[in-house]
Write a protein that binds this DNA or RNA. Sequence first.
DNA 1: CGATTCTTTGAAAACAGTCAATCTGTGTGG
DNA 2: CCACACAGATTGACTGTTTTCAAAGAATCG
Lengths: 194, 194
Amino acid sequence: MYETFQQYINNRTTLTDAEKEQVRSVAVIKKLRKRQYLMQEGDSWKYHAFVTSGCLRTYSVDEKGNEHIIGFSIENWWCGDRESLLSGEPTRFNIDAIEDSELVMFTNSNFEMLCQTISAFKQMIDSILNKSFVTQQSRINASLSQTAEEKYLSFIKKYPEFVQRVPQSMIASYLGMTPETLSRIRTQTARNRA
Amino acid sequence: MYETFQQYINNRTTLTDAEKEQVRSVAVIKKLRKRQYLMQEGDSWKYHAFVTSGCLRTYSVDEKGNEHIIGFSIENWWCGDRESLLSGEPTRFNIDAIEDSELVMFTNSNFEMLCQTISAFKQMIDSILNKSFVTQQSRINASLSQTAEEKYLSFIKKYPEFVQRVPQSMIASYLGMTPETLSRIRTQTARNRA
DNA sequence: CGATTCTTTGAAAACAGTCAATCTGTGTGG
DNA sequence: CCACACAGATTGACTGTTTTCAAAGAATCG
């Protein structure tokens, strides 16, 4: 529902009614069924996508066929592939829906037009990119400095909402371990708490 | 030398002489001796720093005292901590010089002033942040999907200049392995080539 | 040269991955 | 409403990789 995206904007910046309407006029609603792809490896990605409901995952597939989850996107998150968007090259990643989902999408050219005409909009987007950068840096630091158990404990602390909604095997993939390892970590930490 | 930074700008955008002068007028040159800190854990970081010569590393130190290298910065790279810059919180990271180095620095407020007054400058900075984001995402994907050996081979392919300049133990830290493991990987791959 | 730093090597221990079997819960069709 | 199928989670035994600790060997710098 577009209302979710409107709320998101209202919480972050102030636009005039005309500007709000300008944004809305170029937004496209997209619905995805569970397991449906938003983007597949090899596609050329030219959008900015905002999740209003549901949950998606972005992942790569290596030569052995193993999936590696780069990120999850639930309501009020953006998703897509900046690499392909910037370079124009086909994407190395896949995005599919873990739950039935709804998105608000903008083509890149419309999105850039919005950024150029509405400076408050541009500022909001800049701020989001800055925060995403910091989040990624934290994840890199975590991957270097934490043990498997610490990674899991940090994850459930930082993203408790995902634990409920995302299969454990996908959380394992996001954390860079096998589902078996994560399962053993969980029984171990549960034992230690008791 | 400021000339290096001027060249960097010239290669990426076009500024009028007045704009160039405006940038130069707020730039501060900083020299660092090898092993000297640019930033220490707990500092509050309020700059944008560009390396004109030398080499620096950004790293965290965990509870056990182990260092984990988040990144290297050589000439024509930026360095600093966006997390502290955005949040105002003290930084979790350290930056020090691996070689005698020279930087061009801007306070955050001067830097924002430049972005606001010179739109070409702002565009250049936006483009850099976008590219950094993509680079970070690649690194996250690599950390999830590659074996230790693959990580090392990708690294020397992507950053051959670092291999010459940075101690192996620091490359190991950057790649998330111990120096011993990296050393063994190197002798192994050398054997396989022969 | 002497001191320091970095790299290599070895052996043992800790850790995570693989493969296979079993268990659990959910949802669907008969 | 039950039984079955299926996806996901757990467990066990085994293998392989990486870390740890310790010591010896290069390389670099004042």
